[in-house]
Nucleic acid binder design. Structure first.
Lengths: 155, 155
DNA sequence: TATTGTTATACTCTATAACTATA
DNA sequence: TATAGTTATAGAGTATAACAATA
């Protein structure tokens, strides 16, 4: 048990106040690590992780992306997308359909069951996000999303 | 070659506008992926990656953290810290010194050479960060750091 | 000739357990 | 009895190259 004097800052506080600890890249890495951990924990009851959830989420919308689209948007190698879709398809959550515009390509769409699971899982991740962002109110969350978007989607 | 009409949004634009694409957790993951990639590229000429750079940065300050401190602050397993310090120590960039307060613990400090490399590498990562944050001005960078800090360092 | 999806493979990263020396 | 550092190992994540079908 540490019984340090109140006046002295702890080592972790001092590291936080050091150069690295206030670096945007480092804060980004740390915030993301916590976010992924919280997301995976919230998704575990659904048999999903943030990776497979993001594929399911995009398949559940009306965009009808090809595997190549998913690969580029999620910044995953095409071979990783194959593995993720294999797993979701085996569980009956998504389907590969031939792209009418290009017979090489598969369009990935969620099944009814997949959309239902996505809805339930979304509620869980949103709740986990609200806990993680407990210190950030709604207006600041919008501001944060805007700022992150400018970094996440460079021109 | 895709010769789509200008009026139609591309698939990636439509994915971006979908639910997931504006989710803070997803934006965080995507921004961090770009940040790590840019950081590793900027650090490659120095024989460093963001991981080893962060250890060197903390060792180059005056906090004198133990390996345990580094493990907790960087959210790395103690065994990973061992490997990172082994490598940096082999290159003469950091040293393990016995903690006078606890003979089980090692304090990690940068050598003169390590501090010099840290200074040079810091300039490179700052430059890469400015490129990545090209769309975000100084005031918004401060705001972003504040918002990220509230997520990265929960109470 | 180039691209989509696929398979195989290797490499990095991360997580876990067990051990030692000190506390 | 618990903690700091270490070692070993296995699992997850990532990157690369080669192939068949199609553009």
């Amino acid at each position: 048990m540490s019984t340090k004097p109140e006046i002295a800052r702890s080592t972790s506080e001092r590291l936080r106040e050091s150069g690295l600890g206030s670096d945007i890249s480092f804060l980004l890495a740390r915030a993301n690590a916590l976010s992924v951990a919280a997301g995976n924990a919230a998704l575990a009851p659904f048999g999903l992780k943030v990776r497979s959830f993001s594929v399911l989420a995009l398949a559940a919308g009306d965009v009808r992306p090809t595997q190549r689209d998913l690969s580029e948007f999620l910044r995953l190698d095409p071979s990783q997308v194959v593995a993720l879709i294999d797993e979701l398809e085996k569980r009956g959550l998504v389907e590969r359909r031939p792209d009418p515009a290009d017979r090489r390509a598969n369009v990935v769409v969620a099944t009814d069951e997949g959309r239902a699971l996505h809805t339930a899982a979304s509620a869980a991740t949103s709740a986990a996000e609200r806990v993680l962002h407990g210190d950030v109110d709604e207006e600041d969350r919008r501001r944060l999303a805007d700022l992150l978007g400018r970094i996440a989607y460079p021109r």
